[in-house]
Write a protein that binds this DNA or RNA. Structure first.
Lengths: 198, 198
DNA sequence: CACATTAGAGAACAAACGGAGAACGGGCAA
DNA sequence: TTGCCCGTTCTCCGTTTGTTCTCTAATGTG
């Protein structure tokens, strides 16, 4: 990992050590272990680490846990196909692979989809862009997800869980947010990166 | 490396030794190790080394570290700095490198800039995105260019040549297109790719 | 000797770092 | 519901560090 300050390296080392064994430590616990007295200060470092490419695995926002960044040294990810709002993912038969910089990659298994259509235009995702998707079946509020509705339609939307309902927000003023009972929506992945060629 | 004084060779040797192992030493630490008492003097030598071709890789301006060529130079491009509308390019001295997939790369010499601000938001380029810029001094109509106006202000705009005038279109409804006589505008590069991390 | 060149010391400054602490809000358990 | 835990954001402050500057001493060079 590039460009860490001394303190940041310390924190990273501590998390690496702690990671495998016990429960994910809270900010306060890490503070105590490193002799800090302010959560705020530690959090600043953690944010710096994330900016440097570290990925955090939060169970539900709690605990500091790394998702092993040196898991996948492979440079390329498969391009699974194209995704358009309201259509099933159109698979590309002849599987391509695309080089994806490590900082754009997720922690677990990831793949690349090419975006078809303008449904995410207000989020800066244009027709033809590639999105890097981390394969997951849960998402947090506000994340950009690949969601499958009724086992039929795959869409790229911003995710929001509202009680027992899932709200899928398109990022285009021309389209409306869609509400579904949670059991009709299946998360297929979360967008962690994006690329475009001019 | 040519024409180093005794001191400079000493410093270089020390950095080489130290490089791989621990954290990048500060100027003061190098001073102590070499028996100097003044940061200023050491800094003069370091500058001389840089003039002689040495490349520094620092955390954030901190620490003396040689640019380790561990990263495959094929796949990485230098990150020259940040670009904001109407500001000169804010250079990053300690050069970072970023892996850039070949399909996002230009034909000729290329580099990476991080975008600062929302001036290209309608084109899907958001604050914090990286743009891959191919170094060129001419552009075609409709291309996204890094343009230098009056040798002062570097901006990211859509390029249009209208007779003897150059029109620079921002992609944000809040800003106006700007017209300049062609001789006041200098093209520094053309955007060929873009990346974002979530 | 006059003069230029070089190495170093040390002061001064700005930026970045490292940390403290308060406040806010969301989630969770009693 | 209430209170607690925890992550996040914020402001404020002292320290460290890179950079630039001037000044001094040593060393050539004509």
């Amino acid at each position: 990992m590039l460009g860490l300050s001394r303190r940041q390296a310390e924190i990273l080392a501590f998390l690496r050590e702690r990671d495998a064994t016990e429960h994910a430590p809270t900010l306060d616990e890490v503070c105590a272990a490193l002799g800090l007295r302010s959560r705020g200060s530690l959090h600043k470092h953690v944010r710096a680490l994330q900016a440097a490419g570290l990925v955090r695995a939060g169970v539900n926002g709690r605990g500091l846990q790394l998702c092993d960044p040196d898991a996948d040294p492979e440079d390329t990810l498969p391009v699974l196909g194209r995704i358009a709002a309201g259509q099933p993912i159109e698979a590309i038969d002849q599987q391509q692979h695309l080089a994806v910089p490590s900082i754009l990659r997720g922690r677990g298994q990831s793949y690349v989809l090419q975006v078809d259509g303008d449904s995410m235009i207000d989020e800066g995702i244009l027709d033809g862009d590639w999105v890097v998707v981390e394969h997951r079946d849960v998402a947090r509020n506000g994340e950009l997800v690949v969601a499958l509705v009724d086992d039929e339609n795959a869409t790229l939307k911003r995710f929001q869980l509202d009680g027992v309902e899932v709200v899928l927000h398109p990022a285009n003023a021309a389209y409306e947010p869609q509400r579904y009972p949670a059991d009709r929506v299946q998360i297929q992945g979360v967008v962690v990166g994006q690329m475009r060629r001019y």
